[in-house]
């Protein structure tokens, strides 16, 4: 039996999250085709946007953040579609439902898995976008990474929410983008604004409102999903 005291619960929770994340990443590496499709799609969408706008466009610096986040959004849709659905389709979700672990551990593990997968796509998208559209971030590198990671984490939580709510639905191909639609602007708009400011050389103070918005959104969606996910998973 697992430990029951406060610290033991936290350690046990983190260990469960780690096991789920590790298992999903291992599955992803073995399958290969899904990670490949994310990376190819990331590069392709980036290239298409870049050619549509053109590197010599005088407004490229204004378009670049939106282009960057549109590409990340597209790959996020690929990730959302698999996060829970694959477990349902293969029948392995019952393995998670039967394990003596909290629903929040399952959710956190799945959200982190989506985050890692999307971050891999972003690692390809960001530099290629900078090269193709010929722009740079004139701000602190760590701040850029933080803003991008926060935006991707927000998107991952939205994706986990939508994916979990639609996992039993036969029409989830339609449901995932439809339910994402009202949720995504809440995270995407501050991310685009912050990225635009960072490309222009902004400091932490200048992007603080957007960071606060994204953090607030992160907490809000996490809290809502944390409360409801137990019912989604078990009922």
């Amino acid at each position: 039996m697992k430990q029951k005291n406060g610290l033991g619960r936290i350690v046990s929770f983190l260990a469960d999250v780690w096991e789920i994340l590790l298992k999903d990443l291992r599955l992803e590496i073995r399958r290969k085709y899904e990670i490949h499709s994310v990376l190819i799609f990331a590069l392709l969408s980036n290239l298409l946007f870049a050619f549509a706008i053109g590197p010599s466009n005088p407004n490229v610096r204004e378009f670049a953040p939106a282009v960057l986040w549109m590409s990340i959004l597209f790959i996020s849709m690929l990730c959302f579609a698999t996060v829970f659905v694959r477990e349902v389709d293969k029948g392995t979700l019952d393995g998670l439902r039967l394990a003596p672990i909290s629903a929040q551990a399952v959710l956190t593990g799945k959200t982190l898995y989506t985050f890692v997968l999307m971050s891999l796509g972003a690692v390809l998208i960001v530099p290629s976008s900078m090269i193709i559209l010929n722009y740079t971030f004139n701000s602190d590198g760590l701040l850029v990474v933080f803003v991008l990671a926060l935006g991707i984490l927000d998107l991952s939580i939205v994706g986990s929410t939508v994916s979990s709510l639609t996992m039993y639905s036969e029409s989830r191909g339609l449901m995932i983008p439809s339910l994402s639609l009202p949720l995504i602007p809440g995270t995407l708009i501050p991310s685009i604004l912050a990225t635009g400011k960072l490309a222009a050389g902004a400091t932490l103070d200048a992007v603080l409102p957007e960071i606060q918005l994204n953090l607030g959104y992160l907490l809000l969606v996490s809290a809502a999903l944390g409360i409801t996910f137990e019912y989604v998973l078990y009922d």
């Binding site: 039996m1 697992k2 046990s12 260990a15 469960d16 096991e19 298992k23 291992r26 599955l27 073995r30 399958r31 293969k90 029948g91 392995t92 019952d94 393995g95 039967l98 394990a99 003596p100 672990i101």
Partner: peptide, 26 residues
């Protein structure tokens, strides 16, 4: 619990599957 359908992951080895479930049990 063993249900009618298997709860194993096809891409993982038997050892990986079993140790994964064992670790979820603490």
């Amino acid at each position: 619990v063993s249900l009618h359908n298997s709860l194993l992951y096809d891409e993982l080895t038997g050892m990986e599957n079993l140790t994964y479930y064992l670790r979820l049990h603490g």
